[in-house]
Design a protein around this nucleic acid. Structure first.
Lengths: 187, 187
DNA sequence: ACAATAACTAAGCGGTTGCTTAGATTTAAC
DNA sequence: GTTAAATCTAAGCAACCGCTTAGTTATTGT
């Protein structure tokens, strides 16, 4: 009936995701996406509706990629140690060669404003809350402490993880591992 | 000989700084600065050369403002407790009514890229390193531990502080204070 | 072979970006 | 009062933004 697509949507989203990861949402232009994805703007809008659509698909892919390490956390029975492993795994996950790119989600939370990008912000918050939930689950494995205390610890760990996303752009790998060690020293 | 300026440079930078603090560097346009500062674009460029110049002056002012709490840290003899006070003071400092704006410096570190804004990035790094130096100084007050260990602790605290700048936009004041408590629990 | 349909290319839309220029206006020295 | 210099306003520059449209090309069923 009609012509075939000359590109694979999953493949071009992979490239878009990497670009967003490096540059953030706002400072990644559709022209840049065009070049990186290797397809015309028309095709981008035809496949993903708009720039926001490309980003939402990128988040989905990011979520699928990071599953490789969240799955370990999800199935862990090591309590806090399992969370520490997640931190170290994340460091590896966020690395591209020698440089650390931080977390795509955290980077974007920092960049965008809730009132101008409500849909994106909602997706990002969903992502973060899910990780916090896993932290709570693992913390409960160690002993039966007060739920309030456990949730405060989960907040503490989220804070450290958010910090790590920024720190990874400033500190060296050795320093980052030192930070992780101290973060879990007395938990 | 010539006409007088109809505005005070210190006054308009105060307004510019607040705008950058709320919106970040890139997403604050010169048109927005124009309105907020209450002067024409020509005057902005005449006084501060370019947008980067306005921001660098804003950083200077921010530095002067935050001196009110870094001075306390600088003169503290309470060791780690002095740093904890700094964290709590910072929370207050970064508040505008009920909402937390985070740290102007941290917000911007997250937003800009080193290769496109090297001058700004350098100013931001200088600012951060200075705070880390104060952390090291205070940590040395408590006991004579290994210097390496102290520096690792300073990195850990910087990571927590960076995290706090993001967390303050997501968590409540109560949760933030809980995070700070746990951060200093076993130091 | 031909018509129908979807995917392609490339030009261009109105709006915004950081920054500059032209020209009127105010100040102050003489 | 005249002149020179600094400051003001407002229009406008090229480049870019997200997105669309017009027109061409490829693939299919009949």
């Amino acid at each position: 009936m009609a012509r075939k697509k000359q590109y694979n949507e999953a493949e071009v989203i992979e490239k878009a995701m990497r670009l967003f990861w490096r540059n953030g949402y706002e400072s990644t232009s559709v022209r840049m996406l065009e070049k990186e994805m290797g397809i015309n703007q028309f095709s981008i809008y035809a496949s993903f509706k708009n720039k926001e659509g490309v980003f939402l698909e990128s988040i989905k892919l990011y979520n699928a990629k990071i599953k490789s390490i969240t799955n370990i956390l999800e199935n862990s029975t090591n309590g806090v140690e399992g969370i520490k492993d997640y931190f170290l795994d994340f460091l590896d996950f966020s690395r591209e060669g020698a440089i650390f790119k931080g977390c795509l989600v955290t980077n974007t939370v920092n960049e965008i404003k809730e009132d101008t990008n409500p849909v994106i912000m909602a997706a990002l918050k969903r992502f973060s809350l899910n990780i916090r939930k896993l932290f709570v689950r693992n913390l409960k494995q160690d002993d039966q402490r007060d739920v309030k205390e456990i949730e405060a610890q989960a907040d503490y760990l989220m804070n450290a993880l958010l910090g790590l996303s920024i720190s990874s752009k400033v500190f060296s790998e050795e320093e980052l591992k030192g930070i992780i060690n101290i973060t879990f020293l007395h938990l």
